[in-house]
């Protein structure tokens, strides 16, 4: 299925919507897009919209860590509309306690 990425800007909020699967074969694509947005856009909140992300492997967790370290000095990172399966992985690995998870209705 691969990974599709849709990036939009809404004022100070950057939205990166992920559709598909974030694994070792797609993680470079995700990191490139975040690096591009971080280098070219101004924002104070980065929302990673994950409602349509059906699979998250440990390679994706490593990427989330990189994204957090890249962006967090200047902007908040929020994981939005995480599915139950992905949430279970985030909880098991301790990421859920350290990252901000929200539903889109809470934004």
């Amino acid at each position: 299925m691969g990974l599709m990425i849709d990036t939009t800007l809404d004022g100070e909020q950057a939205n990166i919507a992920l559709t598909g699967e974030l694994d070792a074969s797609t993680v470079a694509q995700f990191k490139r897009e975040v690096a591009r947005v971080a280098a070219t856009e101004r924002f104070s909140v980065l929302c990673l919209r994950m409602q349509e992300l059906g699979f998250l492997a440990s390679a994706g967790l490593g990427a989330l860590l990189e994204v957090y370290r890249t962006v967090s000095p200047r902007a908040a990172v929020v994981l939005v509309d995480v599915t139950d399966d992905v949430r279970a992985t985030l909880e098991k690995t301790g990421f859920a306690k350290r990252m901000t998870l929200r539903s889109s209705s809470e934004l």
Binding site: S58, L61, G62, L65, S72, K92, T93, K97
Partner: peptide, 26 residues
Amino acid sequence: LPTPEMLSAPLEDRHPGGLGLMLIRD
């Protein structure tokens, strides 16, 4: 596997190593 201390560390200090092995066993 990552220790509980490693899993609860702040993201600034975390190392991603071992998470895959953990997910296999889990």
